[in-house]
Design a protein around this nucleic acid. Structure first.
Lengths: 121, 121
DNA sequence: ACAACAGTTGAACAGATATTCAACCGTTCA
DNA sequence: TGAACGGTTGAATATCTGTTCAACTGTTGT
């Protein structure tokens, strides 16, 4: 029986001019959703392990599975996500499917994260 | 009744020498988990919206809530995550708590993601 | 001291997500 | 042709995660 209002902000004394200025400068919702989605792909340790492996060499699914001690199925599911978001590319050769990084930026972003982490001890 | 083995990789013909070379080059598990955790923080559109707002100006919780049309509670929960991961810092002034970006790298990583996205049309 | 408001917090709920399991497809090789 | 293997896929399950709700803390001003 406290706030009947939506609790977004009950007083009017939000810093209106600043807020409006920021609102105008914000990227549109779609762009921000895309940014979040890209980072979400990196936000799983299985996928970062896969990526840091592909960082070193082109690998087939079996290679990755044995490298990470995971089932081919689990790896394949994650590779599908990486494929769909254009983070990795693949080529088929006989029975095997070889994966590698698709984009230059990926490694730059990844390295920047490592740099960030190392600097905060 | 197919694979009795763990399905990690049934044949021995994984590319052993390559795999071993990659295994040696891989960062340790803890580092990779940290990388994933950092990216996970960016992997939510509410948090990317908060960050892109703080990118423009220091803001109090009420400002952010009204900017994003969210409750103060929801915003506060997300700010806690950003605080714990040292992505944002805050200062108290009277009743209000003002948040801002804590790290130079954050904006660099964020901008790099935008660049990546814009290049794939 | 009390009312009002900024902000935080924990529990509960709903939606998202990673792994497992079993079945399946396609290629190779005998 | 058919067994063997690399790889993919969908459904099921268990876990995680974001928002809501209600209650609470702390500060300001009367």
């Amino acid at each position: 029986m406290k706030d009947i209002e939506k609790d977004v902000c009950e007083s009017e004394i939000v810093h209106e001019s600043v807020v409006e200025k920021v609102r105008a400068a914000l990227p549109d919702e779609d762009t921000l959703a895309d940014v979040a989605e890209l980072f979400k792909v990196f936000g799983d340790s299985t996928r970062t392990r896969i990526l840091s492996a592909l960082f070193e060499a082109e690998l087939c699914v079996c290679d990755i599975a044995s490298l990470l001690s995971m089932t081919k199925s689990a790896v394949s599911h994650q590779l599908r996500i990486l494929r769909q978001t254009k983070v990795v590319k693949y080529r088929k050769q006989g029975k095997e499917v070889y994966y590698s990084l698709d984009d230059e930026h990926i490694s730059r972003i990844y390295k920047m994260a490592l740099e960030h982490l190392s600097e905060e001890k």
